[in-house]
Structure formats: structure tokens, C-alpha cells
């Protein structure tokens, strides 16, 4: 049986985006030696709500949805993790079981470092500790912003805001506009902005009619960013 080819940190497509990337060459090599790399197919789970954490995941390529299932069995998508993001980091420090499920929305390459190694790295490397704290801070800020949106914005505004967020994380400038380099189903998008898929479809059509976005198949292009910003009622 052949061993899977291992992705070294120095050759990672997400280099300079992750929390370990600033480490010196020797330390980075040590991280490479201690990690486990796997390719997850669309639909496969990295971890499941209610199960025990024993390490942290670092996304090299691909997009992963983080979702929670309520008592009624309904899935709500909390956020999308993409290349350079880390997952499971909160559970390492809180000792709590996973409160969400991480599922690949497309084929992904993900690295895993166990908890013992992460804690050792945090003690030895202030840069890693700082980056994790910074990441936790950004996560908290994003969660607070999202909560505020739910209270203060209507569905149209939340949809526009969501598309602008995707533009920040997944936007690729092209001739037609800014292509959102992520494929989400209507149900997934509706879940993220807390609305029904039918409502999402209606408001997507509105945004197209207004000229803010264009759709080619499943690919969304933002064609009028200032217009979308105003529509989203965002004070930048």
C-alpha cells in the first residue's frame, strides 16, 4: 500500500494566510512533520457536533461549511471556512465538545495537528499564540457583526451584505465583474442569511434586475459593488 504524498507547509497554496505561516523555516518544517494531511471530498465531515475534539484543522484548499443542528433537526450554517482558515481551535482551549459540524462543500485539502502539539507550539512560539488570539478575536467580531445584522437588517440587506462578505473572502476580479469563487447551493445560502430558499431566489432576482449582480450558471458576479454596498446599508 503506498503512502499518500504529503503536502509540506512551505509548498502550501495558502502560504502566508494561516496562523503557522510566519514561523521560521525550521519551525515550519517541524509543523509539517507533525501534521496529518488528508483530502476531503464534497460532503465529507471533518468533525461532527457533539463529538470530542483532539486537535486543530488548517484548511489548505477548498471551502468548508460550519453548521449547527437545532433540536428540531434543522441545519443552520454558521460560517464558511476557506483556504488559510483554522477549525476546531476554540474547542482545544475550552475543553468543550464540538458545538458544530464541519462539512466540505467541495473537494478540500486539510491538515490536522493534535492538541498536545498545538499547546506545545503555543508555549514555544509567541507568534503562533498571537495569531491564534488574533483569529479568536476576529471570529468574535464577525459573530457579533452577524448577530447585529440579524436584528437590524432585513433579508434583502442581509443577502447583499453576505455577497459582499463573500467578495472579500472569495472574490476574483474578472472582466464581467468580481466572480465569487465559491459554489453554495440556494439552501446553503438561505441558511446563512436565515431565510427560506424561495425568498432568497426572489431577492437574488431583484439584485440581478437592479444590476448589482449577474449569474452565469451557478457562478455569481458582483457587477456594481458601490450599489450593493448602499443596498446593504453598510457604512464603510
Amino acid at each position: 500500500m503506498s503512502k499518500a504524498a504529503k503536502l509540506e507547509c512551505e509548498n502550501c497554496p495558502s502560504q502566508h494566510k494561516g496562523i503557522f505561516c510566519e514561523l521560521e523555516s525550521l519551525a515550519l518544517k517541524n509543523v509539517s512533520e507533525n501534521k496529518v494531511v488528508n483530502k476531503y471530498k464534497k460532503g465529507q465531515t471533518l468533525f461532527v457536533q457533539g463529538n470530542p475534539p483532539f486537535g486543530m484543522y488548517c484548511v489548505s484548499t477548498g471551502n468548508i461549511k460550519i453548521s449547527q443542528v437545532g433540536e428540531d433537526g434543522k441545519e443552520s450554517i454558521v460560517r464558511i471556512a476557506s483556504a488559510g482558515d483554522v477549525l476546531g481551535h476554540r474547542s482545544i482551549f475550552t475543553e468543550q465538545y464540538y458545538n458544530a459540524t464541519a462539512t466540505a462543500v467541495e473537494d478540500c485539502t486539510v491538515c490536522f495537528l493534535d492538541k498536545k502539539y498545538i499547546l506545545k507550539l503555543v508555549k514555544e512560539s509567541p507568534a503562533v499564540a498571537t495569531n491564534i488570539i488574533s483569529k479568536l478575536g476576529k471570529d468574535l467580531g464577525a459573530a457579533e457583526k452577524r448577530l447585529t445584522s440579524f436584528y437590524q437588517k432585513n433579508v434583502r440587506e442581509r443577502l447583499a451584505e453576505f455577497l459582499l462578505l463573500l467578495k472579500e473572502s472569495h472574490g476574483v476580479k474578472e472582466a464581467e465583474g468580481i466572480r465569487l469563487d465559491i459554489k453554495l447551493t440556494r439552501e446553503e445560502m438561505a441558511s446563512i442569511i436565515a431565510t427560506a430558499p424561495e425568498t432568497l431566489i426572489r431577492f437574488m432576482s431583484e439584485l440581478k434586475q437592479e444590476g448589482f449582480i449577474e449569474q452565469k450558471g451557478k457562478t455569481i458576479y458582483i457587477t456594481d459593488e458601490p450599489g450593493l454596498l448602499e443596498f446593504a446599508n453598510i457604512l464603510y
Binding site: 465531515t45 463529538n51 470530542p52
Partner: peptide, 19 residues
């Protein structure tokens, strides 16, 4: 030891086990 509260995939075919 740890208890897995939810039925789930521990190791996928073709994956290197995390532990």
C-alpha cells in the same frame, strides 16, 4: 478517554488516520 456522542465517520477510506 473520550465519548463520541454522535454517530459519525471516524476514518474515511483512503485517509491517513488522525490517531
Amino acid at each position: 478517554s473520550r465519548i463520541y456522542q454522535t454517530r459519525s465517520e471516524l476514518i474515511y477510506k483512503g485517509h491517513i488516520p488522525l490517531a
